[in-house]
Computed example of a mutant assay.
Amino acid sequence: MRPAFLYVGSRRKGPSSWSPPPAGGFGIGIHRFDCETGTVTAVGRVAPELSVGYLLHDARRSVLYALHEAMTLPDRKRGGGGMIAAFRVDPETGALTEISRSPSFGTLPCHATLDAEGRHLLVVHHTGHTPVTRTRKTAQGYEIVLEYDEAATVMFPLDNAGRIQPPCHVRSHDGRGALPDQTHSQLHCIRHLPGTELFAVCDKGGDRVTLLRQARETLHPVRDIPAPPGSSPRSCLTHPRLPVLYANFETAPLLHAYRWSADGEMQRIAAIAPWAPCAGPQPALMPSDMAISADGSRLYLLLRGPEALTTCLLHPDGRPEPIDTRPLHVENPRAVALSPDGAHLLVAAVVSQEVAVWPLNKDGLPVGEGRRQPCAHAGCMAFA
């Protein structure tokens, strides 16, 4: 059996700022993963100057894409946004060789996906919270205008080797939510809906999930699915066998499930609070990442604040039912993943700087206290 390699992105935690890029200790950690025992062994690190907010593996080309979640390009004093770096993966050693690097054409790029043919990489931007102050003269006199960084979905063509080409389309989003921090669109996740040309985009700032349709090298808006006011849609993922999309919300204890059609219709089939309180005082709840089993029977959700994991049973029609919530004993769990064989669950924690690994029992629930591997600023993961 070919060895499994786990790539862990090290991400700088903190408010959006103009601070300089990290001097080192960040980048992508390369680890060998033992599928039998769940042991994670560090074997190397690349691009330590990058604050990696998301990793995407292109299995067709054996390329790993890393998003540098930043507001300032290296050749700028301030401004210019983040970057994308592409690395060729050596399937035998796990080594990464950089093959291209490009500006992301926005600030704080935080999620990416490939289109159905693997010909384009689509990147969404969270953007910062610092506005530019301008004035505008109206019939009633002068008024103050606050302008924020453009929240955009950017589509990049890829060449045959997976190198990033100049963008072919930039789709700007313009929304505002009910909370004081929801001053403008803040995109946090993009997913391709299998079997269609559709993409779902979670807009935290706009309290909506936006559907886009790809037509060659252009993205067209299809519809917005409103979210509860002040809920901040954060992450979404698709069922492996059913046309069902799951979305969670950063500032509301909700999980929604939608059934989609190829023409872009979205029918909500479930809206639940998918967790029970853990023991002790209850801190503020901020759901983060999700993962789904390959057979579509279990959905796993990370809960920041309680620092916990909720497991949901997925019924034959895709409806989720929470069956277990347990503490993780990590700080700031930001990413969850399943091992390639589905036998282990992994959690990356930024503040406690570790990757924790649990075996899963026959019911799909984690077993024991978990095996801990120190990992600098662990914020995202990808297997290859």
Rank of each mutant, 00 (worst) to 15 (best):
V8S: 14
S10D: 01
K13Q: 13
P15V: 05
S17L: 02
W18N: 10
R32M: 04
F33S: 08
F33C: 04
D34M: 07
A42V: 06
V43S: 12
R45Q: 15
E49T: 15
L50T: 08
V52R: 02
A59S: 15
R60Q: 15
M71K: 10
T72K: 07
D75P: 04
D75I: 01
D75R: 08
R76D: 01
R78G: 00
G82Y: 07
M83W: 06
S100T: 11
S104T: 11
S104R: 12
S104V: 12
T107Q: 13
A112L: 07
L114D: 06
L114S: 03
D115V: 09
E117Y: 00
R119V: 04
H126K: 13
T127L: 07
G128M: 09
T130D: 06
R136C: 08
A139Q: 03
G141E: 09
I144G: 00
T153H: 09
F156Q: 06
D159A: 06
N160R: 15
R163F: 00
H173M: 07
D174F: 11
D181Q: 13
Q186L: 12
H188L: 08
G195T: 12
K204R: 15
D207N: 06
D207K: 01
R208Q: 13
V209H: 04
L212D: 01
R213V: 01
Q214M: 07
E217T: 13
H220M: 04
H220I: 09
A227Q: 07
S232I: 01
L237A: 08
T238E: 04
A247R: 05
S261A: 14
R268W: 01
I269R: 01
C278H: 05
A284S: 13
G296K: 06
R298H: 13
L302C: 08
P306G: 09
A308G: 10
L314G: 03
R319E: 13
L328Y: 10
E331I: 10
A335Q: 14
G342S: 05
Q353N: 14
V355A: 05
A356S: 13
N361Y: 06
N361T: 05
K362V: 12
G364Q: 03
E369Q: 14
A384T: 14
A384F: 14
